[in-house]
């Protein structure tokens, strides 16, 4: 259910950008999805399949690139890849991560005709 609203927002961003570039059709959407984003790729695909109907993005392929989480420890400054259920720094043991990447859901580019 979560992804319904998110996919609607993604579609409106895609359509807006495509129209701004005078596209008649969107053939692909290239997405960056962070592993900490709480968004499930399969659910976005499921909603996309019916939301895109009747728009210029109908039938466009979704290409996901998964972005691994990366954090800097606020306590000791170490850079590491936190685990979703255990975000402690492997060097100092504190769970004070400043997430540098991994919570994003971005439209990187679209393929248009």
């Amino acid at each position: 259910m979560h992804e319904l609203g998110v996919t609607e927002e993604m579609l409106s961003l895609v359509v807006r950008e495509a129209q701004a570039h005078g596209a008649s059709r969107v053939t692909a959407v290239n997405l960056l999805l962070g592993e900490f984003s709480t968004i499930v790729e399969e659910s976005v695909r499921f909603y996309w399949d019916f939301l895109c109907r009747g728009t210029i993005a109908e039938g466009a392929d979704l290409h996901f690139t998964i972005v691994p989480a990366a954090a800097r420890c606020r306590a000791c400054g170490n850079s590491y890849r936190p685990d979703a259920r255990d975000e402690r720094c492997p060097v100092c043991g504190e769970a004070l991560p400043m997430l540098i990447q991994g919570d994003e859901f971005r439209v990187e580019s679209i393929d248009i005709e």
Partner: peptide, 16 residues
């Protein structure tokens, strides 16, 4: 002619 255009925007941009 198909072409790729850069968007580089967060899906959450409007909400944010």
């Amino acid at each position: 002619m198909p072409k790729t255009i850069e968007v580089k925007q967060s899906v959450f941009a409007d909400n944010n």
